[in-house]
Simulated scan of single mutants.
Amino acid sequence: MDAIKTYFPDLPADQLALFEQLDPLYREWNQKINVISRKDIDNLYLHHVLHSLAIAKVIKFMPGARVLDLGTGGGFPGIPLAILFPETEFVLIDGIRKKITVVNEVATALGLKNVQGFQQRAEERKGRSFDFVITRAVALMEKIVPWSMPLIHDKQLHALPNGIIALKGGNVKEELKALPRGTYSEIYPIKKMFSEEFFIEKSVVYVQY
């Protein structure tokens, strides 16, 4: 929690209280359904919550926006961002039912009215109804892009045009080379946002719709 308070010093008390509830909730659910490595649960805030919030250093989601978290796993990055942006609607999907069970139970326990979780693959969703697709460690960008682009609409609410925002590690430039010629993308190194060693080789990647 100290890192959250350091990098987001203006959070109101009600949002801080929700972030503080994440630790006991995920510990409880992790005993029933293993959605976070048991070795990693002690690093929940750094490796999962703060990592998710790196997206908020790139974009401030607007009230009324709709965001799809593709392959959310246990709810990252969607749930931390839903706490931070309570007037933005977040739809979290994953192909594994037990993970979506955790997502919906955590969201209910926190009273998050702006979160919906569905057991679903990106290919099963129809219609362009989202401003952004967000994702973390799901697949290579050459797969994420064709899964995501058919779901993003044209109406613009943000200074950053609608598109995909992915949390990635490793050699992101090589991944982006595999995208179709002319695809616009930007890389935001997380080490410029957060000083912890964990983030040295991690990035937020933006691909424009």
Rank of each mutant, 00 (worst) to 15 (best):
L22N: 03
A82G: 06
T101A: 07
V35R: 01
P77A: 03
M193N: 09
E196F: 11
R27I: 13
A159I: 10
K5V: 14
E123G: 06
I187G: 01
I187Y: 01
L16A: 10
L140S: 15
Q208F: 12
K168A: 06
L157G: 03
L50V: 11
G163H: 08
P80G: 12
L25D: 11
E142Y: 10
I134Y: 03
Q21K: 05
P12W: 10
V106H: 11
L11Y: 07
V138G: 06
K57N: 08
D154T: 13
V67Y: 04
A56M: 01
R27A: 13
I83A: 00
F19Y: 12
P63C: 00
K39Y: 13
I93L: 08
V67E: 05
N104C: 10
H158I: 04
I4W: 04
K177S: 15
Y26E: 09
Y209T: 15
F8Q: 06
K39I: 09
R181I: 12
S52G: 04
K192Y: 11
K113Q: 09
I134S: 01
A159G: 03
G64T: 14
E197V: 12
A65R: 02
H153D: 06
H47K: 13
P63F: 01
E175L: 02
H47S: 06
I36E: 08
K192P: 00
L11A: 10
H153N: 03
Y184H: 15
A109I: 12
E89A: 14
L18S: 09
L160K: 02
F76S: 01
A65V: 04
R27Q: 15
P86W: 00
E124Q: 15
K143F: 13
E186G: 04
L25G: 12
E87S: 14
I165K: 04
S148W: 15
Q116V: 14
G169E: 13
A3T: 15
G74A: 06
L53G: 07
K32C: 05
F76I: 02
P80Q: 12
S203R: 07
P80N: 11
V145M: 15
E142F: 11
K143I: 14
P24M: 09
F199L: 06
V49C: 08
V138Q: 05
P80R: 09
K39E: 14
P150L: 14
V133R: 01
A54V: 13
L68C: 03
R136S: 03
L18N: 06
R97Y: 12
A82F: 00
S52K: 01
A82W: 01
I36V: 13
G64P: 11
I59H: 03
I187K: 03
G73V: 12
I134T: 04
L50I: 13
G127F: 05
V91A: 07
N171L: 10
W29K: 10
A54H: 08
F61T: 07
G74W: 01
A139E: 08
K57V: 12
